[in-house]
Amino acid sequence: MNVLHRVGRWIGEHLVLAAGVLVLVYMFVPIAVVMLMSFNDNSKSRNVYAFRDFTWHNWANVCQPDGMCEAVLRSVVIGLSATLVATILGTLAAFALVRHRFLGRSSMNTIIFLPMASPEIVMGSSLLALFVSAGFGGRLGMVTIFIAHVMFCLSFVIVTVKARLAGLDGNLEEAAMDLYASESTTFWRVTFPLVFPGIAAAALLSFSLSFDDFIITNLNAGQTVTFPMYVWGVAQRGIPMQVNVIGTIMFLVALAIVVGNMLATRRKQPA
């Protein structure tokens, strides 16, 4: 009886793990398909949905489809500038919220939470309504996209940096002050290096949010085409296989950054 019970338990425990792994597989199938299709030679066939022959052609001629690389470049420029501004403003705000007391602090916390809890279509159309009523309806483009991206990245930056800042050991700063470090020395030599991983994570998050955004961007872009908008456009006609190359490159770069970061922190803190 006891043995039977144990066997049942063993199966039970591993069943959950197996089911979890299956869910992970479900999450990875589409990515595997993207990677596979980046090597697909569909030049002889109209059907873009089937794998025909293996080829390096798509990788060697990434920029062949009209306007795709320009769109990628535009998304990178928007992503970098929105990330820079959102990270700076968001970090300042996180310091204000964790380290200072001021009027309206709790309502500020609510306002920061709201963009993360609003459907993108509502935020996007609200912003469009603002631009149109302010007379910018005909001048939608890079600037309006940038404004929108900083707006929705800000909340994520603030929340990420706040979490890091709140978990900080205040004793370290006090120790620096006790050792006669000035307030600014303490900040730059102790506080900032400790908060930096949070800021870096926030910047990465905001770049990927910006680079990938479609719904809000599409409403506020006018004639400007970002990479997601390019994909949306070609999805109606037939997707060039090079789109999958860009998808694969994005995936590998981001994975390399995350894994590299994990290894680096592990080396610093042997535990």
Binding site: P30, W232, A235
Partner: peptide, 10 residues
């Protein structure tokens, strides 16, 4: 990891 590839491409 799925976030690392474009929403639309996925």
């Amino acid at each position: 990891a799925p976030f690392f590839t474009s929403f639309l491409v996925r």
